[in-house]
Amino acid sequence: MTETPESFDRDRLIRLSGLEYLTAMLGGEIAPPPIWGLMGIALIGVAPGEATFRACPRPEHGNVTGTTHGGWYGTLLDAAMGCAVMTEVPAGAYHATLEYKINIARVARPGLEVEAVGRVQHGGRRTGVAVAEVRGANDGKLYAGGSTTCLIMTG
Rank of each mutant, 00 (worst) to 15 (best):
residue 61 H to F: 04
residue 122 H to W: 11
residue 68 T to P: 07
residue 92 G to F: 05
residue 90 P to G: 06
residue 97 T to R: 03
residue 108 A to E: 01
residue 135 R to H: 09
residue 98 L to F: 10
residue 81 M to G: 02
residue 78 D to E: 12
residue 72 W to N: 03
residue 94 Y to A: 09
residue 122 H to R: 15
residue 108 A to V: 07
residue 67 T to M: 14
residue 99 E to I: 11
residue 87 T to R: 07
residue 120 V to R: 02
residue 100 Y to A: 08
residue 117 V to L: 04
residue 69 H to A: 03
residue 61 H to I: 03
residue 67 T to L: 14
residue 117 V to H: 07
residue 100 Y to W: 13
residue 77 L to Y: 10
residue 61 H to S: 03
residue 103 N to I: 08
residue 84 A to F: 00
residue 122 H to M: 07
residue 131 V to F: 07
residue 115 E to P: 00
residue 77 L to W: 10
residue 89 V to H: 07
residue 141 K to H: 13
residue 91 A to H: 03
residue 88 E to V: 05
residue 92 G to W: 07
residue 141 K to L: 14
residue 88 E to N: 11
residue 87 T to P: 06
residue 97 T to D: 02
residue 133 E to H: 12
residue 107 V to E: 14
residue 112 L to W: 00
residue 92 G to R: 11
residue 103 N to M: 09
residue 72 W to I: 13
residue 78 D to Q: 03
residue 124 G to M: 03
residue 111 G to E: 11
residue 114 V to R: 08
residue 65 T to N: 12
residue 126 R to C: 02
residue 122 H to E: 11
residue 122 H to A: 10
residue 117 V to Y: 05
residue 95 H to L: 13
residue 88 E to G: 15
residue 103 N to A: 15
residue 84 A to H: 07
residue 131 V to H: 13
residue 61 H to M: 04
residue 113 E to F: 05
residue 115 E to S: 09
residue 131 V to A: 09
residue 121 Q to A: 09
residue 87 T to Q: 05
residue 67 T to H: 13
residue 82 G to S: 02
residue 75 T to L: 11
residue 128 G to Y: 01
residue 104 I to Y: 11
residue 118 G to F: 01
residue 74 G to D: 06
residue 122 H to V: 12
residue 84 A to I: 00
residue 78 D to R: 00
residue 128 G to K: 01
residue 93 A to V: 04
residue 119 R to T: 14
residue 95 H to F: 14
residue 63 N to W: 10
residue 129 V to C: 04
residue 85 V to H: 00
residue 135 R to Y: 09
